[in-house]
Every structure is written in structure tokens, then in C-alpha cells.
Computed example of a mutant assay.
Amino acid sequence: MDSSQIKHFDYIFTGTGLAALMTVYKMVLSGNFADKSILLLDENQKKTNDRTWCFWEKEESVWNSVISKKWDLALFANENFKRDLALKPYQYNQIRGLDFYNFVFDKLSKQSNIVFSQEKVTDINELETHVFIGTEENRYTCNYLFNSIYTKAFALTQSKYPVLQQHFVGWFVKTEAEIFNPKQATFMDFSVEQKGNTRFMYVLPTSKTEALVEYTLFSENLLSKEEYEKEIRLYLQKLGAQQYEISEKEQGSIPMTCYPFWEKNTKRVLNIGTAGGWTKASTGYTFKNSDKKSTQLVAFLQDKNLKMSSFHKKNRFWFYDLLLLDILYRHNELGSAIFSSLFRKGNPALIFKFLDEETNLAEDFKVILKCPKIPFIKALFRVIFA
């Protein structure tokens, strides 16, 4: 192909998932990138409601207008106890994928410097002065590339860092009987049979008869779809739902690992989202971490001495996550006991603050000391001497 036909951009985003869209949206809000040409490449048009994101927040954020439901209360349960959690000063928020996509793309479509193209990326090649990107239809170059296309092999072909999955199937149901409490989300219900794993139900009710009911595991291997759905049916029966309709289904698998994806960052290529290690390793939560990281990235891009490989900074929470994943990888059946020990008597607001990586050292120890001691001490020695 004639090089004159290759289109050049200042920035290209390969993949338009949560991290990419948050980052570009905030670049627009900042007003500091209007003179930069930006291309978004993804084979998916983002026209379907393919996922649901939840996060806890104290104040309103830039995403407030697309939050479809907020809860002030949550439930934690296992086979032995139930605890109602008052979340204040936090609220637990839900955003439907399609609402988020429409909100962001509506803003981006009005920017003359931003282009979205539905194309499958086939090749990325970094050169000294630019990055070359090939798709099935076109060729592009850019000064800097932000990649959110996840390569499973990076984490799965190494043995230094354990790799689990947060995998789930969810049903949006409408029941005949009024069985849900729309004021309370079920954060984790470990009363389901564990079968040697970390398994729980997650329920987001929007009315007394409507909810997203999700069967979730933190484990190494996925199940057959029938097994997830069988457990959802059993759980709905236990709640008293004899008759119900399923309006939508969702399923997903999110990698849970402390593998240092950021070490793949180079002079001109920055991996973002799950591909860049932006997912919270110990929980699989993505929205809040991506919100923070995207804000940091937009500020980082305005540094005149830009060095992409220096963007990521490892902190002590990465180490805490590593200990938990080491335990769950070796003894997956301990998940219920660990999370139950945290939530049985722990302060919910402090736990959320800890999971958001906003606690100080003294607060860290208040949370950590609620956990079973022996598994964590063993994991500590394994990690130190590995």
C-alpha cells in the first residue's frame, strides 16, 4: 500500500472498552486535547447492553447521569449468618453498559478531532518515531497508542503470579411474587453450595419483582453455562420465585491476577484497562479502578516530558491482593471464610475504603486483622521467599 494512503493520528485507541471510553471522554472534558487527532478502533459497535458495572461512591461523579440505580443498604450472607450493611457515607451504584456507551459516544460524536471506526485490529508494530496499526481494512500510524485488547497468553503462560477468573452468568428477571427488597443490594451471598470453590450469589433489585440475579465464582476454571443457570434457578426458588420471566442475560469472565501487565508498556504504547492491569486483582472490580486510572492518565498525557513506560506505579495494595490470590489459588474453598470474616463484624465503609485503596496503614491493619491469620501468614512467607 502507498504510504500516502496511511492515515496518521496523534493518538489511537485499540479497543473501546470502559478504560478507553473513560479516558477519551475525560480528554474532551479537560479541553486540552482539541488540537490532537484521535482514532478509536473496535470491531464491536457498542450498540448492545453487554454488561452491568457497579461501584461504590461517596460523592457524585461525572457518570452520575447514567447511574440507573443506587442502594444505601447491602446484604452479606453465608450459610450461617446474614448481615445488613449500612453503606453510608457510600452508595452502591449501577450503570448499564448501553447507557454508558450512548452517553460517551454522544459526547465524542460532537468532536471534530475524534473518529470511531468499526474495524478489527490485526497488527501493532512500534517503530522509533511512531506506531503502525493494521486492521482488516486499513493501515494507520500514530504518535502514541493506547491498547485495551487483552492478551490472555501473557498471564496464562507464566507461573510466578496466580491467575483466577471472576466468572458469572446473570439473569434480569421479573417475578410474579414480590420477593426482592429494592432498597438493598445483595453484595455476596455465600449460602449457595461452595463445591470446593469460592461461589456466591449477587442480586441487584430494582423493584420488588425485578432484579439482576448473578451466580459468580472466583476460581481458576469456568463452568458449563447449564451449571450457572441451574444455580440461579435453585436460588430463585429459595427466594420464593415460582413464576418469573427472564428479560435479558449477561455473562462474563474477568481475570484476577497481579501479573504486571504494565511491564509491557513501552515508549509509545500504553496498555490500559484489563490489558494494562487496571482491574482490581482481588475482586475483579473494574469501574472504580478505571475511573481513577483514566483521570491519572489524562493528567499524565499533559506532561511535556511524557514517558509512557513510567505511567504505572505499584503500591502496597498490589501486595495485599497478591496474598489473597495466592490463598484462593491454592485453597479456593477458603473464599467464603475469608470474606465472611471481613464482613461479619467489620465496618462496611472502612472495607469499601480499603478496597478502593484509600486507607492509611493503620486502617489497613484494622481490615486485615479481621481475616483468618494462618492462611495469610503462610501466603506472606510463600510470597517473600518465592
Rank of each mutant, 00 (worst) to 15 (best):
K7S: 07
H8L: 00
A19T: 08
L21Q: 09
T23G: 04
V28M: 06
S30N: 05
N32F: 10
A34P: 02
L40N: 11
N44S: 13
W56R: 07
W56P: 09
D72Y: 03
L73S: 01
N80F: 14
N80M: 10
N93I: 02
R96I: 10
R96C: 12
G97L: 00
D106Q: 14
K110I: 11
S117D: 15
Q118M: 12
K120Y: 09
V121N: 07
L127F: 13
T135R: 05
N138P: 03
N147H: 09
T151D: 15
S159K: 14
V169P: 05
F180V: 09
E193C: 13
N197L: 15
P205R: 06
S207E: 14
T209E: 14
Y228W: 09
Y228R: 05
K230H: 13
Y235I: 04
L239S: 06
G240M: 02
A241F: 03
Q243S: 14
Q243I: 04
S247R: 11
S253H: 04
M256P: 08
E263F: 05
K267R: 12
G276A: 05
T279V: 10
T279R: 02
K292S: 09
L306E: 08
K307W: 00
K314N: 05
N315W: 03
D321P: 01
L328I: 02
R330G: 13
N332I: 04
F354D: 02
N360S: 10
L361F: 15
L369I: 12
P372R: 11
I377C: 11
K378R: 15
F385G: 11
